[in-house]
Amino acid sequence: MTSALNIYDPSAKPDAGPPSLAGLTRPQLRDAMMAAGVEERKAKMRADQAWRWIYHHGARDFDMMTNIAKDQRAELEKHYTLDRPEIVERLISVDGTRKYLIRLAPGVECETVFIPDVGRAGALCVSSQVGCTLNCTFCHTGTQKLVRNLTAQEIAAQVMIARDDLEEWPTSNENRQITNIVFMGMGEPLYNLDAVSDAIDIISDGDGIGIGRRRMTVSTSGVVPKIPELGERTKAMLAISLHATNDDLRNELVPLNRKYPIAELMEAIKAYPGLGNSNRVTFEYVMLKGVNDSPAEARALVQLLKGVPSKINLIPFNPWPNSPYECSDWETIETFAEIVNRAGYASPIRTPRGRDIFAACGQLRSESERLRASQRKS
């Protein structure tokens, strides 16, 4: 049964209170300590102490920080909070998927999705932008206009919010529910690479949340100049939102291809730092009935990926209102997968998750946007 906590109030005004320390980078946290009156020579030590409380213990109250003097805690509390952004809506699917609609500022909202039973335990799909500029024709998320980039603090806060809800504090290597992070939510991560890189630094830090870089995957629609830089800066796993094997079709499905065609994309992928059998590229391929799902296109995909350490995620199309596409028949998807498998590539068929709460791939904010529009009209 779908359960929802809807605390949306369109008339609510943000509380212009002190800024939060939750989600800051180490240098930002050090600067915050000095701004609160900590001597420069002690600021790094205090920042390291606060870091541990914020990211290892998930502290929501300065009184928890027992290795920091009381008067210093009181001073920090005058200047800052440990608050997370507001959860506007929390939905739980029949399959255990959880979706959070998060308000970052008035009129600025993003969605984050926790998917159980992915990777070692579960994956958290985070957003890097509010809206998107790419206009991929099969993706409802991509049809929503870009509002702005998220900050590293706002990206890291998505992880903290999910861990709050799943009661995953303090950090432990045992019985974790969130073991993987995927930058596959709203937006194109490589158009916000500085913030994405800083957020990965925060999330991977071993003194805090401690999710390894090899357990973080960044998905791009093909911002070619930024692909090698992503690997150099983050050492994260790379995923490519591909969906077609020729430029004519990909120009239609992924308009960014007109700027960076497939040949250029493949060259950038081959230059990805650390690429190898233990660090394969994931190619995402949404299955669209009668569009890109023929045996000939499966064979073309095999040829395109020749020599690239790869795995292919075949994604049954997730419908949304007035979509121009349909999902391929299951038999067609299995035939496609068999051709790719026989060529030596892993090609798992992704099980659709969270469809009942519009949390599946390509659906983010589709239902919440419709509800917001309805509320504005009423």
Rank of each mutant, 00 (worst) to 15 (best):
126 V>W: 01
345 Y>P: 00
277 N>T: 07
225 P>D: 12
88 V>T: 15
115 I>W: 04
250 R>I: 07
166 L>R: 08
66 T>E: 15
287 M>E: 09
161 I>V: 11
295 P>F: 15
160 M>Y: 02
145 K>P: 00
210 G>R: 10
153 Q>A: 12
64 M>P: 00
208 G>L: 03
81 T>W: 04
92 I>V: 15
169 W>E: 01
51 W>F: 11
94 V>C: 13
127 S>Y: 09
338 E>D: 11
221 S>F: 02
295 P>S: 12
123 A>L: 04
192 N>C: 12
336 F>I: 01
355 R>S: 02
212 G>K: 12
197 S>W: 08
15 D>G: 04
175 N>R: 15
305 L>E: 01
357 I>G: 00
356 D>V: 00
114 F>G: 01
93 S>P: 04
244 A>L: 09
183 F>I: 00
317 F>N: 05
323 S>A: 14
335 T>D: 13
113 V>P: 02
174 E>M: 11
137 T>L: 14
350 R>D: 08
124 L>Q: 00
187 G>M: 00
204 S>R: 03
188 E>T: 07
199 A>N: 05
117 D>H: 14
332 T>N: 14
273 P>E: 06
286 V>W: 02
105 A>K: 12
343 A>I: 04
343 A>T: 03
344 G>S: 12
251 N>Y: 13
83 D>F: 03
116 P>M: 11
349 I>F: 12
256 L>T: 07
19 P>Y: 14
313 N>H: 09
305 L>H: 10
237 M>W: 05
219 S>V: 05
308 V>D: 07
11 S>A: 12
63 D>F: 08
226 K>Y: 13
282 T>F: 13
139 C>Y: 04
318 N>I: 05
215 R>D: 03
273 P>F: 08
41 R>H: 12
47 A>M: 08
177 Q>T: 00
237 M>L: 15
316 P>Y: 09
54 I>L: 14
356 D>C: 02
103 R>W: 06
73 R>K: 07
248 D>H: 13
318 N>A: 07
363 Q>A: 06
243 H>Y: 12
135 N>W: 07
186 M>N: 06
136 C>L: 08
88 V>G: 08
3 S>A: 10
94 V>W: 08
152 A>I: 03
107 G>F: 09
56 H>G: 08
330 W>D: 12
342 R>Q: 15
359 A>P: 00
87 I>H: 06
178 I>D: 01
344 G>Y: 13
133 T>I: 04
258 R>K: 15
245 T>P: 03
171 T>M: 14
267 E>Q: 14
103 R>F: 02
269 I>V: 15
163 R>F: 04
304 L>T: 10
174 E>N: 11
244 A>S: 10
163 R>N: 12
80 Y>F: 11
222 G>C: 09
110 C>D: 02
66 T>A: 13
151 T>H: 13
340 V>E: 00
331 E>S: 13
156 A>M: 05
79 H>K: 13
88 V>H: 12
334 E>Q: 15
112 T>V: 07
176 R>N: 04
146 L>D: 01
